[in-house]
Amino acid sequence: MMSGVITFYSSQQVMKAEKILKNYNYEELLIPGPREISPNCGVAICFDYSKAEEIKELFKKEQILYEKICYYPEAKKISKWF
């Protein structure tokens, strides 16, 4: 179940991150960036928060510049829809 969100400074990095998450078969969904979490890029990525640490490692390895990876209860509602 998706329960976390990753925010970014730039949509270019979102596109790179999305591609990598897909390649590694992580559950992901692009959503309009939640402003209560970040004023930055217009798009964020919802994911399963239990995978947060491994995704951080993956982003480090792949040199993905993200802003925050955090718990996002709202994502559970999103999970029910998709």
């Binding site: 730039s10 949509s11 270019q12 979102v14 692009l30 959503i31 309009p32 960036g33 217009g42 798009v43």
Partner: peptide, 17 residues
């Protein structure tokens, strides 16, 4: 591209990348 969060904008961002 890079502006909104809906699928058409996301697809435009994807095209740029």
């Amino acid at each position: 591209p890079g502006r909104s969060g809906h699928r058409m904008s996301i697809e435009a961002s994807r095209l740029v990348e």
